[in-house]
């Protein structure tokens, strides 16, 4: 296994190049509206996330609840005492400048950090309805990964055929019947809007596909195992605009079927695909709310500055 240094975009590398603000902005100061001298109206739909915030509308269920959660790379605290709920069957976008901890938080959901030494979770991420704490070290990370799928920044199909890529997770879960495999692979490829393009060449190597197709294949792979949550880590950052819009459409369609958490650098993307948005800054959760409200009328000056492109 590679040393942890090979991990892409390590927060420690990027944090120094963070937003060019004069001083670290105190979230609490921002919350009172004093820091930027901007009067703050009470907004019931967007919540400053200093205590407990929920991305969910009251009616919707909470699929996962992050509670007083911190994460450490060695001595460096990348996620700082975050609390947030993720609505069931909805898309929640995590936004924020590079190094703000959004990808780090995302990778806690399937315990990816367990692959690297010297990492530490603190607090809870409760998965409903079972109430299991995802980051409890006594719980096998494999069990969590069986229930929570992930789509990565760059398409990473396995060196196998298109069919075997999608069947990979199913085989790991003990599906042996050829018929069932074929059915579920087809369903997953249809769900990822890829079936029409590959149905006649399922046995061809996945590397022969274009980048956008590879990413949709990875989405099919993630969907095939019928996960409870799908994590998207900047899924379009390596794709061209047309492939990007296909993936965005797909994510938008998927939200009626599965809980989605997506990390994105692209504010327009967050606005287009997500129901809820959570804004993180320097490891802290600044603001959480309905996407439309947050983009029209953010509760905090810092959020407003970020989404209007003044830093990050």
């Amino acid at each position: 296994m590679s040393p942890p240094g090979s991990r892409p975009a390590h927060p420690r590398d990027t944090i120094a190049r963070g937003p060019a603000l004069a001083a670290p902005v105190s979230v609490d100061a921002a919350a009172t509206g004093g820091a930027a001298g901007r009067p703050r109206e009470p907004l019931p739909t967007t919540t400053p996330a200093n205590q407990e915030a929920t991305a969910a509308a009251p009616a919707a269920g909470i699929k996962a609840r992050v509670q007083d959660f911190s994460f450490y790379y060695g001595p460096f605290q990348a996620v700082k005492n975050v609390s947030i709920g993720f609505a069931e069957r909805a898309v929640t976008a995590l936004i924020g400048p590079s190094g703000c901890g959004k990808t780090t938080l995302l990778r806690c959901f399937n315990r990816m950090h367990d692959l690297y030494p010297d990492t530490r979770y603190e607090g809870k991420i409760v998965l409903n309805p079972s109430g299991i704490n995802i980051v409890d070290r006594r719980i096998s990370p494999i069990e969590m990964r069986m229930r929570i799928s992930m789509v990565f920044q760059k398409p990473n199909p396995f060196p196998k055929s298109i069919f075997e890529n999608v069947a990979y997770g199913l085989r790991l879960r003990g599906v042996r019947s050829r018929r069932e495999l074929a059915d579920r692979v087809e369903t997953a490829l249809k769900g990822a809007a890829l079936w029409g393009e590959v149905s006649d060449r399922l046995r061809k190597p996945a590397f022969a596909l274009s980048g956008g197709q590879q990413q949709r294949l990875c989405i099919a792979r993630a969907l095939a195992v019928e996960p409870e949550i799908v994590l998207f880590d900047e899924p379009t950052s390596a794709l061209d605009p047309i492939a990007t819009s296909k993936i965005e459409e797909l994510i938008h369609e998927l939200r009626s079927r599965v809980t989605i958490i997506i990390v994105t650098h692209n504010m327009q993307q967050a606005a287009r695909v997500s129901d809820f948005t959570a804004f993180m800054y320097l490891g802290e959760m600044v603001e959480v709310g309905r996407t439309d409200m947050m983009f029209q009328n953010p509760a905090r000056p810092l959020t407003e500055q970020y989404i209007s492109g003044r830093f990050g």
Binding site: M1, R145, S149, F158, P159
Partner: peptide, 9 residues
Amino acid sequence: LREGSYAMG
């Protein structure tokens, strides 16, 4: 590529 495999369980 390894992470992709681990992420599938």
